[in-house]
Simulated assay, not measured.
Amino acid sequence: MMQAQFQSMAEFFHMGGYAFYVWLSYGVAYGALAVLIGFCMTRKSRVLKEIAAKVKREERLAQHRSNRQ
């Protein structure tokens, strides 16, 4: 038979008097993950735009070279 660690939901959220530290650590961890995900998504879109610009520039240079010959 499994024994419950907490007698009620209020006791669970209170965490034996350590609720502030427990929930703060969860908040900081999830906040850091959200910032990291946001940074990565922003950086990815910036890199893809830079790649597209380079490809377009290379195509334009290749077109210019072929017109000169």
Rank of each mutant, 00 (worst) to 15 (best):
R46Q: 13
A52N: 08
Q69G: 09
A52P: 10
R57T: 05
V22K: 00
L61G: 04
V47E: 02
M1N: 06
E50G: 04
C40N: 14
S25C: 11
A53L: 06
S8F: 03
M41A: 13
W23P: 11
R65K: 14
M9I: 14
H14G: 08
E58W: 02
A34L: 03
S66H: 08
A10N: 15
W23V: 02
A19Q: 03
R46P: 13
L61Y: 01
N67L: 11
M15A: 03
Q63H: 07
G31Y: 00
V22W: 02
G38P: 05
R57E: 13
S25M: 14
M9K: 15
A62I: 01
A34P: 10
H64T: 09
A4G: 07
C40K: 10
A34R: 08
Q5C: 13
I51E: 04
V47F: 03
Y26G: 07
E11Y: 01
I51H: 12
Y30T: 07
F12Y: 02
I37N: 09
E11R: 06
Y21I: 06
R65Q: 14
Q63E: 07
K49C: 06
M2W: 15
E50Y: 05
V28T: 04
M1R: 09
F12H: 05
Q7A: 15
K44T: 13
K49E: 09
E11G: 12
Y21P: 09
F12V: 03
A62L: 03
I37V: 04
A53Y: 08
F6W: 01
G17E: 03
W23T: 01
G16W: 00
V55L: 05
L24F: 13
G27T: 02
N67V: 05
S45D: 12
R60Q: 08
M2A: 12
A32Y: 07
R68S: 06
F6I: 00
F20M: 11
M9V: 14
L36H: 08
A19D: 05
L48K: 13
M9W: 14
S45W: 02
R60F: 00
M41S: 15
L33F: 07
Q5M: 12
F39T: 09
T42C: 15
A32W: 07
A10D: 15
F39Y: 13
S45T: 09
K44G: 12
F20A: 07
R43E: 13
F13E: 12
L33T: 04
V22M: 01
R43M: 10
F6Q: 01
V35H: 07
A4Y: 06
A34E: 07
V22S: 00
V22I: 02
G38V: 00
M15V: 01
T42A: 15
L61S: 07
A52G: 04
T42G: 14
I37F: 02
V22L: 00
